[in-house]
Write a protein that binds this DNA or RNA. Sequence first.
DNA 1: TATTGTTATACTCTATAACTATA
DNA 2: TATAGTTATAGAGTATAACAATA
Lengths: 163, 163
Amino acid sequence: MNSKTRAKAGPEVASSKDDFWPAVIEFTLSQKAWWMSVCEEFGLTAMQGHALRNLDPDRPVAMSALADFLTCDASNVTGIVDKLEKRGLVARQGAGHDRRIKMLAVTEEGRRLRDSMSARILEPPAAIASVSPADRRRLAAVLRAIVDERAAAAAPARKKVVL
Amino acid sequence: MNSKTRAKAGPEVASSKDDFWPAVIEFTLSQKAWWMSVCEEFGLTAMQGHALRNLDPDRPVAMSALADFLTCDASNVTGIVDKLEKRGLVARQGAGHDRRIKMLAVTEEGRRLRDSMSARILEPPAAIASVSPADRRRLAAVLRAIVDERAAAAAPARKKVVL
DNA sequence: TATTGTTATACTCTATAACTATA
DNA sequence: TATAGTTATAGAGTATAACAATA
């Protein structure tokens, strides 16, 4: 049921142009389901998966940085990290220079799970095999431009470090 | 912080190819935040927005069909529809031929809100303006192919009506 | 005073299981 | 028996507000 089955769609004008953005939106929805299923494979919820994905096995990450990445409140991160820590995937550590800050380190078990999940995520769908390198570059560029555009619109007063 | 800042990345092989899929994943995340903000504009949660989007102003939709679209349990849909109905955006109706089934009709107020939201959603980001019609067709086809592939993998024994 | 993270609280989303009413 | 939807319950995510420790 892809629907939008309008009885009569009226004059078929610029259909190829108008289909692009709807296709992008439809794509996004399918990705959500895909992400949940991937996380489920590893016994994680969607947010726990996002959190673990953002952590760095080589270098502890501050709670606040994780909250920033997940775009959710710090109090929320506390609960999410609690569950990851209870499962032994991450560990809270002091930051040393600033004792308010807590850094999140990935445990050995967490690293293994994270690596497995990364490999799983990066399995490209078969459907992109036929796409030429040029098209890949173009599509990737478009998607990144949209990301940047939306991010700029959503966070007008964010850090926005101008490297 | 796009990171993956590996100290030494080794031989830089096929970098343009390997960046494609990561770009797609990153895009998906930004879309989630975007969708939430759009729904918020209209006083809806993300799921309420999805539900309203799937309903048809011209033709009532069964609860079960909505559950299917949202890929969540029927008991969950009950609560989501409760809130939409309490706000006067949708109304439960009998199906006539099968009195177990409840159809969801969009109210006049619901239709207005839905139309506004649709218009808002279909505002294409400025970033896609530079993409040629030919590229749009190709890129849309890629995205739809991925959607179909993932849907087929996720729902092997689904209805899958072969129109 | 301001910041980092936690706790308390409340609401939404989520699934499972038990239930009602149909079929 | 099987199906459509509800209710009860419990776990997870979510934000706000109040708080402790630290800067």
